[in-house]
């Protein structure tokens, strides 16, 4: 299942690449993409991994980029 989440706050282009790598390394994530221009994070994982995988991605984003977070409906 693939879901996209909008990013709140600012993400610089270099940070986006870094965050993307870290999210892609999460267990159960098949595919991850962080687009700094459109401010969207796209995640592909098994359906049962949602919304946990999104929350984990949010945590990574917050750690890497101060002021940025993912908008996740639980």
């Amino acid at each position: 299942m693939t879901k996209a989440y909008p990013i709140k706050g600012q993400v610089c282009a270099a940070c986006a690449a870094r965050v993307e790598k870290k999210i892609a390394a999460l267990p159960g994530v098949i595919f991850a993409r962080v687009n700094a221009l459109t401010k969207k994070v796209t995640l592909e994982a098994a359906p049962e991994r949602f919304p946990d995988v999104a929350l984990e991605a949010d945590r990574i984003l917050r750690r890497e980029e101060d002021g940025a977070s993912l908008v996740v409906d639980r």
Binding site: C12, A13, A14, A36, L37, T38
Partner: peptide, 9 residues
């Protein structure tokens, strides 16, 4: 780093 991707977008 900001303006080049923005140009293409």
């Amino acid at each position: 780093v900001v303006s080049i991707p923005l140009s293409f977008f």
